[in-house]
Design a protein around this nucleic acid. Structure first.
Ligand SMILES: [Mn+2]
Ligand SMILES: [Mn+2]
Ligand SMILES: [Zn+2]
Ligand SMILES: [Zn+2]
Lengths: 153, 153
DNA sequence: ATGCTGTTGATATTAGCTATCAGTGAGGGT
DNA sequence: ACCCTCACTGATAGCTAATATCAACAGCAT
């Protein structure tokens, strides 16, 4: 019987290889935390939130390990690290399909919407040309009022 | 004799009026901290850094007041609040001339370069059209290698 | 199977920031 | 110029996200 693989499995395998390439070990804790993010695409989780979710099925994983693992995956660009100005860092899978979307933060209700299109190439090109600054990443946050909050007013 | 006013003084006066309009008092502490930012245009100061600078000429101003004043001015849009991912908030004067510039952060040496703001209108318009999200502010950070770090390699 | 070395969990510690509260003073009214 | 009121201040205690420490553990190369 041919082994069935879904898209997530393939991505996971690649990330395991990425760990190996960089001399990091594939530990059960890292597997579990990685799977958690594949199960929750679209959410922006803090370390504490990840830890709390783990309590149900993996209470043996310590909080320090959660912090360390999130940092490691962010370093490897597996997770994207971000902050919505609430005093804690948040993480989400750096999925190829939704690569580097922008975040729209509602200043009224705090909801975070995503916008996938990038459209920053022109600006980045202009910046590099003028400043000789070699750009390889960006973080863009838009603040405003979401659709729901505009209606309920 | 006609009172000589430089550009800074005029801006300061406007900010005093802004405080009055919003029923905030013009205290010596607020005057001093505001002046400090006019004296240090281009710097991105943390609360602790402001407090340390004040130690020389105004050691009577407490750290809590610094935090409160920075927050107040940020709320009034006099200062722009930002973070370069080093765990502390930073502030700089929201100068009319350099209004809302982007920050280019060198991942090698940590230096922050500025790039005056434009070319985002098209993107914002498209986002509003597609998502009905009413944008009224944005924060954009670019990460890469600065000119100096490219040369010394 | 063995050994090296990266990793982990528990916990102490740090650091940026906020809350508290009694005393102070800015500014409007007289 | 003198009150009066209440926003403001400084000192400091408290909070919380994140990091440092360290002995025990476990991937994984051999
Ligand atoms: Mn997102
Ligand atoms: Mn700046
Ligand atoms: Zn909203
Ligand atoms: Zn640099």
């Amino acid at each position: 019987m041919i082994q069935q693989l879904n898209k997530g499995d393939n991505q996971v395998k690649k990330i395991y290889e990425l760990l190996k390439e960089n001399d990091f070990k594939i530990t059960p804790q890292r597997k579990v935390i990685l799977n958690l993010f594949f199960d929750r695409i679209g959410e922006h989780l803090s370390a504490e939130e990840v830890y709390n979710i783990l309590q149900e099925n993996h209470p043996e994983i310590g909080l320090a390990t959660v912090y360390r693992t999130l940092d490691l995956f962010a370093e490897l660009d597996v997770l994207q690290k971000m902050s919505f100005d609430d005093g804690k860092n948040r993480y989400e899978l750096n999925n190829n399909e939704i690569h580097h979307h922008h975040h729209l933060i509602c200043v009224d209700c705090g909801k975070v919407t995503e916008f996938s299109d990038d459209l920053l190439e022109a600006l980045e090109e202009q910046i590099t040309r003028k400043t000789k600054f070699k750009i390889n990443d960006h973080k863009v946050k838009f603040y405003g009022i979401c659709k729901d909050c505009q209606e309920t007013r």
